[in-house]
Design a protein around this nucleic acid. Structure first.
Lengths: 337, 337
DNA sequence: CTGAAAGCGCTTACAG
DNA sequence: CTGAAAGCGCTTACAG
């Protein structure tokens, strides 16, 4: 079948393509086009099954109504949910989302940025990788609308959507303390992300203030060797003297793998060891006991990021950092809710 | 910052934009452009930080190097993984993927098809919703490259990538029978999808051949009320006389919710009741006993779909249905692997 | 009330 | 070895 363009319709009706464009876009203000012609155009378009060419339109108007979403690890459920919500909200506002995955690698982030720029995205939402501050600075200087989410570089002054990492981690650790844990471990990443370090700082401060902080109980695991390192960390913790009776996990990937490692070692979670996880996981709902976790307001984060970005695209140019509050969820027996 | 186009480079160098285009695209065959000039162009492009406008190129050449992926339910882990792999393979072949979600609704599928057509996708990969056969027929007749995956309409003669639903379901049900189950239930969707019905048919045939099929043990649940219906179905099964001692779940969403419902009712899975699930789930790996499941070759499905689609885009026009083999996974104690 | 024309940024025959 | 020109399908001032 041959492509139907505005011109096809215009020719068949003996009018100009300008008129057809106006009518089809509803830009026929102040009765520019007669009602009669207008209806004929609409009918013909429907009849020919006309589909507008968005590419041509974008090229002409210089806006693609597309936003680039760069995610650090799309296989992570947290990011998956974030991407899904961002996509939904974007669509509601008339924007299409192009998703790129970086696998936490700076080189891939650079590649995705260029790729998406070539596709003429109107703006970016990014969960930046480590050491991407220079790339972000460049991007920001080029004045393309940009919002960071989940993570940020505080010194960079770029729009960001974060949670209250320090406060919620402090509070969650206090909960473990209040449950009677005297020897609380922290498992975190060996890395340089601001948000993760804030979580660690929150937990450490809570322990210090309770007078039970022990630096030996902080284990750092590597992103690339998560499973192996977690196993080792858990093994160390449960075999130390004195044994650890509580663990704070600083991210969701660490949490789920940490719980698996505990179960594998026949530790009765929430009895032998109290734990505190980051982010909800379907797996928790299948366990016969409650797994308390820090619930991030993913949907709100997505909505805020989109709102911020679209405001920028539409000409707003103040920079903002929005801090949303995470919630501490502690259910009786999770599977029952 | 002003946009840098081919013309900017051409003007600064005093050459034509045609020459710049040729050089930048590496189409400078047979020494058309002098090495000297060629190098100058490359240098200038790098210097100005030139980013090509893919939109303009696509408009000109009539190919967008974009494919539309329409997923029935992106929050489902199976589809999430499928989408991820499709995206990866597409990228390797130089294609961008635009993802649309239909939430199993025909109206949303229609909307996404039009939306993606307007974006000039070169082809579609679709997990079709129920009753979308007419829409697919129209699409297929318009000669746009099209591949269905996971699901199909056998009467439609459209490229499809499926698994051996009947055979693997038959075989998996046999496993339950061999474990000694005498009273096996089937929980499936109340719907009209070919692939799900094939799974059901496979299970039923296995039971019939063993002489233990009982139509009362087949429960149908609704997609929109999955939790409620599953709870009811499980309740019925475990309170019947004689009680069910094995259950075959026909999809992954049914499986995970079914397992949750069993645990909630304090059924000791794999002891009181043997189960068989569709698709892997992270949650299974946290349970202290093995949950056998049918593992679909998701990555292979993605690869095959992309290969089939790109072959079509590049001019191939034979129609093919590829059946990939699913695998029965039955581990000792899953959490240990 | 409607049309002719320019131009978005490319590529690709064609001419020299 | 290189340039001028046309055209992809739109939109938008401008002219009438």
């Amino acid at each position: 079948m041959k492509k139907i363009s505005l011109k096809t319709i215009a020719n068949e009706l003996g009018v100009s393509s300008a008129t057809v464009s106006l009518v089809l876009n509803g830009k026929d203000k102040n009765g520019r086009v007669s009602k009669d012609l207008s209806e004929k155009i609409l009918a013909k378009a429907a009849d020919l099954n006309y589909v507008p060419n968005t590419l041509a339109k974008s090229l002409k108007v210089g806006k693609s109504k597309t936003i680039g979403l760069i995610i650090a690890d799309i296989s992570n459920l947290f990011f998956g949910a974030l991407a899904l919500h961002i996509q939904t909200f974007a669509q509601q506002k008339g924007y299409t989302v192009l998703i790129g995955n970086t696998n936490e690698k700076l080189s891939e982030m650079e590649h995705m940025v260029n790729f998406l720029l070539a596709r003429q995205v109107d703006g970016f939402i990014i969960t930046p990788t480590e050491k991407s501050d220079n790339l972000l600075k460049r991007l920001n200087n080029s004045n393309i609308p940009l919002v960071l989410v989940d993570r940020t570089f505080p010194e960079l002054n770029i729009n960001s959507v974060l949670i209250n990492n320090y406060e919620i981690s402090y509070k969650s650790t206090e909960l473990l303390i209040n449950k009677g844990c005297k020897n609380i471990g922290i498992v975190t990443y060996k890395q340089d992300h601001f948000h993760v370090n804030e979580r660690r700082r929150g937990a450490v401060d809570a322990l210090k203030n309770a007078g039970i902080f022990n630096p030996d109980n902080v284990e750092e695991v590597r992103y690339e060797y998560l499973r192996e390192d977690i196993s080792a960390a858990i093994y160390k913790m449960i075999n130390r003297n004195p044994k650890v009776d509580g663990i704070f996990f600083t991210t969701n990937s660490i949490s789920i793998n940490g719980v698996k490692a505990l179960i594998k070692n026949d530790i009765f979670v929430q009895k032998d060891i109290q734990i505190m996880c980051f982010d909800e996981n379907d797996a928790f709902y299948i366990l016969p006991y409650a797994v308390p976790f820090i619930k991030q307001p993913i949907k709100e984060m997505a909505r805020t990021a989109i709102d911020l970005l679209i405001a920028q695209i539409e000409g707003d140019n103040k920079t903002e950092t929005v801090i949303l509050e995470a919630e501490l969820v502690e259910k009786e027996k999770v599977v029952n809710q």
